[in-house]
Design a protein around this nucleic acid. Sequence first.
DNA 1: ATCAAGATTACCT
DNA 2: GGTAATCTTGATA
Length: 203
Amino acid sequence: MIDTAFNYILPRKFYTRPVITVAKELLGKVLVKNEGKIILAGRIVEVEAYDGNIDEASHSFKGKTKRNEVMFNEGGFLYVYFTYGAHFCCNVVAGKKNHGAAVLIRAVEPIYGIDKMIERRFERKLKSEKEIFNLTSGPGKVCKSFGFNKEHSGIDLTGNFIYLLNAPKLQKSKIGVSKRIGISKSVDLPWRFFEIGNPFLSR
DNA sequence: ATCAAGATTACCT
DNA sequence: GGTAATCTTGATA
């Protein structure tokens, strides 16, 4: 079951805190896309923080542009961008209005609507059981599986279309920390967070 | 108008 | 482990 009183939709307050706090606490929370007939859900297991004030790798570092303007909202909005001519990546905006920070969702553990995710991502059935671990184990893969694209950028995550459900905080001992992946600036910031040992992590 | 870079992925050796 | 694919965006002229 997804919608229980226990698993309430995360409120604005959750998102308007500092981006590093939000990033760590997003681990274990459940990303939901409710298309009505189709409901997709996945448990967040890997994220990266981006903070425009001090982080050259952040899209928001050089200020507001048409592409990144959503990042300057207050926390709790979805920021989706297109990259490498092929992939979308989805982020959760964090912090106060005009700060320009967001958390990249790098990997989720699929938990509901899995057959639909497989259809959208591979356009065929799984070739083997272990291929499930390649379904949502990367930022582009998550977006393909959930059908996220530019149209979804700017959506309010406190609404009832795309949102996050609460879940208990992970134990500190379960949270891994590392440098971020695939960037060429501010490479040493230890702003990647993941659930240690989870089989759905990227690479 | 042109250009370089990119918060990736799939496929090859 | 290495790299081609592919096209949007933002910067510069």
